[in-house]
């Protein structure tokens, strides 16, 4: 137990150094800061504006009011941002495999998954976080979601679960590169699919798709189910607190599956060159 605690402290210590290095790297490329500061907020603010236009034309989306949609959208963007900060490397796993980048991780006395995910923390993910929080707070005001400590606690638990689900799926998709040995990056597609399924109510899709997105690829738990539970928009058969805790549980399960797939994959790792 004491050893485990010492291990944990060591990982935290190294993480702090990684974060410091990430900040230092940013300073090296000032032009990139401006780029990211522009690109990510533009994406989500324009994205949200389009929802507004669509709602203006169509009235509501599957019974969800504008405020409820903002709440859903905001939370989806926040968990997206968190997954971008901590798990974006999953998108580039193919590149790591092809370029033999795992060599370096394997010769160091730390977990390979840990080093892979944290060796380049994507501080710029914060630029996604800000528009997410703005839209979310706007949604809270519109639907009258009270910022009580219990509610804030639930939102945090939900976000942890949602981030783990996203991150786990990135790692699982990326791990396919161990078998295919191709550097294809599915990031863009993954994001588009996540956008379509987390920023709008899942209930608008056919039941078969809903089933898949609930039980097989549990994207529904990233935003739809916990938000439905919290706001009581849709009858999903579970209470608000329950829906949040299930989200966390799903997140942990997806992450475990990702860890399993990754560790099976790394055994097939063949480095680069001869």
């Amino acid at each position: 137990m004491k050893n485990l605690f010492k291990e944990l402290l060591h990982y935290i210590d190294v993480t702090l150094v990684y974060i410091k290095m990430a900040f230092l790297s940013i300073i090296e490329y000032p032009s990139a800061i401006i780029g990211w500061l522009l690109s990510n907020p533009i994406q989500f603010i324009v994205g949200f504006a389009t929802i507004k236009f669509v709602v203006a034309e169509f009235g509501s989306i599957n019974g969800w009011s504008y405020g409820q949609l903002a709440f859903l959208y905001g939370l989806a963007v926040i968990s997206h941002a968190l997954s971008m900060i901590f798990f974006i490397q999953g998108w580039f796993l193919g590149f790591y495999v092809i370029e033999g980048e795992f060599d370096r991780f394997l010769t160091r006395p730390l977990g390979v998954v840990y080093q892979f995910l944290f060796n380049q923390i994507n501080i710029f993910g914060i630029t996604d976080l800000i528009p997410g929080i703005i839209v979310f707070v706007y949604g809270c005001v519109k639907v009258g979601f009270s910022p009580s400590p219990a509610n804030i606690g639930l939102i945090i638990v939900m976000l942890i679960g949602a981030t783990l689900i996203r991150g786990g799926i990135y790692v699982i998709l990326g791990s396919s590169a161990f078998w295919t040995r191709s550097a294809n990056d599915f990031g863009q597609y993954t994001q588009e699919i996540f956008d379509k399924t987390t920023m709008y109510p899942l209930s608008m899709y056919p039941e078969s798709l809903q089933f898949i997105l609930t039980y097989i690829i549990p994207i529904g738990w990233v935003s739809f189910y916990p938000v439905s539970g919290l706001l009581g928009v849709e009858e999903i058969g579970i209470g608000s607190a329950m829906s949040v805790w299930i989200t966390l549980l799903v997140g942990i399960v997806v992450m475990c599956v990702a860890g399993f797939v990754f560790s099976r994959g790394i055994k097939r790792y063949e480095s680069a060159g001869s």
Partner: peptide, 17 residues
């Protein structure tokens, strides 16, 4: 680390090991 001064890479290794 390609982007940073050499000392930073040493510092990271100091913590890792």
């Amino acid at each position: 680390n390609w982007d940073l001064r050499l000392g930073e890479s040493f510092e990271l290794l100091r913590h890792i090991y």
